[in-house]
């Protein structure tokens, strides 16, 4: 059987993809990544969650700090965030409030703290999900930070940083056909275009398979204790997909390796040009705990 695009193609991406122009790069402050590559940092810590799976706030702050510092080859986390936002910026932190697996509050707070450390007033920082289109701070935002957990999704295959911006769309339903192939277009909306400075895909407790009425079952969530961080949302999601696939291969078998059908990640690259999905063009830097790292 031959297909115009195989399952493997989803993670291979396509040749000739244009590297996404991150905010950092646009500011002339890109990290010293190999030529033609975009950097993604995976940071993990065995104590990110305690024995009862509660989030460890100080550890998560350190993880974020290490990841962003390495991402930009900065001297320290405050220096790194100063490269991402300026004191005069209005910063919208686009979070995710899905009740079964929301963005962990310690991650939101860690981001907000560093944005403030970079000189942005607390009153100029917004945190929102469902009402970003009308939230006054997001309407006038000059910088966005994109943060959410990684999980599988029945229609889109995977919910990551690309899908997180669906709330900026006038119609969410309009993005549902063809496995949500058009999700990347939301990064080109006037309210969004060119403003995303950082993408944080929370892999603290990823969900690798969905079941039940809300496509969620705790059986398919595991304590990976990681964060995937980058300035390129497509590269971050492509890395998250690799993680989900690796876990599915182990738990569900090779036939179920790819969650159907995450084509929107590749299409965000090839059709919308907002980043790179090609793993050959992604420099994955791994920090911290490496047990069962999977990717």
């Amino acid at each position: 059987m031959r297909s115009s695009m195989t399952r493997r193609d989803f993670i291979r991406g396509t040749a000739g993809a244009v590297l996404g122009a991150s905010a950092a790069a646009a500011l002339g402050q890109a990290a010293a990544v190999p030529a033609g590559k975009t950097r993604v940092v995976l940071v993990r810590h065995p104590d990110a969650l305690d024995a009862s799976s509660a989030f460890n706030r100080p550890v998560i702050q350190r993880m974020l700090d290490e990841a962003v510092t390495k991402l930009l080859d900065a001297s320290d986390p405050v220096d790194a965030f100063k490269r991402l936002v300026k004191p005069e910026d209005f910063v919208g932190i686009k979070t995710n409030v899905w009740s079964f697996l929301p963005t962990p509050a310690p991650v939101e707070q860690a981001l907000k703290r560093r944005v403030m450390d970079a000189g942005v007033a607390e009153t100029a920082i917004g945190l929102d999900d469902h009402t970003v289109r009308t939230n006054p701070l997001f309407v006038k935002a000059t910088a966005l930070i994109n943060v959410r957990p990684v999980r599988t999704h029945y229609l889109a295959g995977m919910s990551g940083c690309i899908k997180n911006y669906i709330m900026f769309a006038e119609s969410q339903e309009a993005h549902h056909p063809d496995s949500c192939a058009s999700l990347g277009s939301n990064f080109l909306l006037p309210q969004v275009k060119g403003k995303t400075r950082l993408n944080v895909l929370c892999a603290l407790t990823p969900q690798f398979h969905g079941r039940g009425p809300h496509n969620f079952s705790r059986r398919y969530v595991w304590n990976y204790k990681g964060l995937i961080v980058g300035t390129d949302p497509v590269a971050v999601d492509a890395t998250g997909l690799r993680l989900i696939m690796a876990k599915r291969r182990i738990e569900l078998g090779p036939d179920q390796e790819v969650p159907p059908v995450p084509k929107h990640i590749q299409i965000a690259d090839t059709r919308y040009g907002i980043g790179t999905a090609d793993p050959d063009k992604i420099e994955l830097v791994k920090l911290g705990w490496l047990d069962d790292v999977l990717i």
Binding site: W98, L155, N215
Partner: peptide, 8 residues
């Protein structure tokens, strides 16, 4: 009721 999954 369903934030994601209604289409199913």
């Amino acid at each position: 009721y369903m934030d994601g999954g209604a289409e199913v």
